[in-house]
């Protein structure tokens, strides 16, 4: 069985999008639980991807291929996983704040987080504070991620956090923010929990925030 998990890890690492569903099904048929396939096969593969990316041995397009491979396997596993698990490392609600139409950085982070085993609910761009609040109430995520590229739209991050506080749900969720103009000082000022300087760091920060 451990050989099977190894094959899954290698398939994720190598971005074997065509093979992964077959391998996942074989593992399930062989008696592995969905949780075991995830924890012992897929996630160790993605962890290795993260390590290699950090030291410059893998590049963004390859990381995203691995992430897509992981996501393809998750389609088979999700119905079998316990609801409380949220499909792996937990749920993240993510979006670009109101007034800001820049989605590339946010998309990159979303794919990276998905690849790292999070379930991502992407609200898209130009997301109003109320829409973030509604999504937090609805999906009960462990994390809320907000992106802004412009200094002129950054204040919407603080307003969103204020909305969470007003609604009494701020304590239920960790808030991480990102985007070129965001700084550690800004994070403190708006009472967010953390920020990440780039997409690779976002995965590390997210894992740290959920206590992984």
């Amino acid at each position: 069985m451990s050989e099977m998990y190894g094959q899954l890890s290698v398939a994720v690492l190598g971005g074997s999008l065509k093979e992964i569903k077959k391998l996942t099904q074989m593992a399930l048929d062989g008696g592995a639980s969905a949780q075991q396939v995830l924890d012992l096969g897929l996630l160790p593969g993605m962890d290795e991807v993260g390590k290699r990316f950090k030291v410059g041995e893998m590049f963004i397009p390859e990381v995203l291929l691995s992430a897509r491979t992981m996501t393809a396997a998750m389609e088979l596993l999700k119905p079998l996983l316990a609801k409380s698990e949220g499909g792996g490392r937990g749920t993240v609600v993510i979006g670009t704040v109101q007034g800001d139409l820049h989605n590339i950085g946010k998309n990159l982070v979303a794919m990276m987080l998905e690849g790292a085993g999070f379930t991502v609910v992407d609200l898209g761009i130009d997301v109003k504070p109320q829409a973030f609040l509604n999504a937090v109430k609805q999906h009960k995520p462990k994390l809320l991620g907000m992106s802004a590229l412009l200094t002129t739209t950054m204040p919407r991050m603080g307003e969103t956090i204020h909305a969470l506080e007003e609604a009494g749900v701020r304590a239920q969720v960790k808030v991480m923010v990102g985007g070129a103009p965001v700084t550690a000082d800004f994070v403190a000022k708006i009472r967010a929990d953390a920020y990440a300087a780039n997409a690779g760091a976002a995965v590390e920060v997210a894992r740290a925030l959920v206590g992984d």
Binding site: P61, L65, N107, M111
Partner: peptide, 12 residues
């Protein structure tokens, strides 16, 4: 318009 090329085969 408004999409991205991050995960396109072409990029890879």
């Amino acid at each position: 318009p408004g999409g991205d090329y991050l995960a396109e085969e072409h990029t890879l």
